[in-house]
């Protein structure tokens, strides 16, 4: 993998002004959605992708939407991460997503990159994937049928199909992300292990808990970087459900995570390290999530 200061590949570029125009262009051979460019340009520079046409969607008004109403957060595909990181609605109601965005890359990257782009790049360690998965986010996908724009909504947990792979078909693009409002007495947090703060995660996770008095009524836990796609770890979720949390019991539940993972060894970590770390990370992330759900401090009994 090498990079150079010039891009040697030839491609065409269009700055779409409407969704219809973007979708029409995306139906062409070798077309790619271009937003922040922080992942795609690297793929082009390192010859991992060779597009014929980049369709810049950042100028499309209808994709710049950001709203929170009727219990649903809507984030358009052209919304950049830096816009989201200090949004009060996210800081207050979706703290795990806030933490993930803050931890992602650098100021520069977040000024360029979009939330939808982080998902569509489909890296197994995309930081925003685990929190969005535990918040039960949905992805809005658009395509052109004859001349009409058709939309379908799918759950984020069904969106990823492999490293760099999603359910998106040719001519389709993600136009928005929808996140339902977390219910009362629930809380979530994000955790990440990386070599340094700027680095990509070795493993990341999000823990979401629904509390009923002193008991975990329901747990949703997503782990990134330890399988071909970010995954919900059901073994741990089931073990936590109905639990009156103690440090020991949380650790025991988190230790089951290996059964839901299939990590690889690469430059960032070995497979064993990833499995062991995921367990510790889930345990550590449980505590702030529990606190945010309104739970009492957990004592060792």
């Amino acid at each position: 993998m090498s990079s150079s200061r010039i891009i040697t590949q030839d491609f065409d570029y269009i700055k779409a002004v409407s969704l219809g125009e973007a979708l029409e262009s995306l139906a062409k051979d070798g077309a790619r959605v271009f937003a922040g460019g922080t992942d795609l340009l690297n793929k082009i520079k390192t010859a991992r992708d060779n597009p014929k046409l980049l369709v810049d969607i950042t100028g499309i008004e209808e994709l710049k939407g950001f709203s929170f109403s009727e219990g649903c957060l809507l984030i358009g595909a052209a919304v950049r991460l830096s816009f989201l990181e200090d949004e009060k609605v996210i800081t207050e109601r979706y703290p795990a997503l806030h933490e993930a965005i803050k931890s992602l890359g650098s100021v520069q990257i977040r000024n360029m990159a979009t939330l939808a782009g982080n998902l569509c790049n489909a890296s197994p360690i995309a930081d925003t994937a685990p929190p969005l998965m535990v918040y039960d986010a949905e992805v809005e996908i658009s395509r052109l049928h004859n001349t009409r724009i058709e939309k379908r909504i799918i759950s984020l947990k069904d969106f990823f199909t492999g490293p760099g792979q999603t359910v998106l078909q040719k001519g389709e693009m993600v136009t928005g992300v929808r996140v339902p409002e977390p219910m009362a007495s629930s809380g979530a947090a994000f955790g990440k292990i990386a070599r340094v703060t700027m680095d990509l995660a070795k493993v990341n996770c999000a823990v979401w808990l629904k509390r009923e008095e002193a008991v975990v009524a329901e747990a949703r836990i997503a782990v990134g970087g330890a399988a071909p796609v970010p995954v919900r770890v059901e073994k741990v979720e089931k073990a936590l459900a109905g639990m009156r949390p103690s440090s020991k019991r949380i650790s025991q539940a988190a230790a089951l995570v290996g059964e839901n993972l299939s990590p690889i060894s690469d430059v960032r970590s070995t497979a064993k390290y990833r499995t062991d770390t995921a367990s510790v990370l889930i345990r550590d992330t449980f505590f702030p999530a529990w606190k945010r759900s309104g739970g009492e401090e957990i004592t060792d009994e």
């Binding site: 200061r5 570029y13 922080t38 980049l54 000024n111």
Partner: peptide, 29 residues
């Protein structure tokens, strides 16, 4: 021009007042 892949920040410029990476941005955009 430093790393070329968005890790080093040597190519940082301000775009409408905000830091961005000039080696990760097409001139057209």
């Amino acid at each position: 021009y430093g790393c070329g892949v968005g890790e080093c920040g040597a190519c940082t410029v301000l775009m409408d007042g905000n830091p961005v990476l000039s080696c990760q941005m097409l001139a057209l955009s």
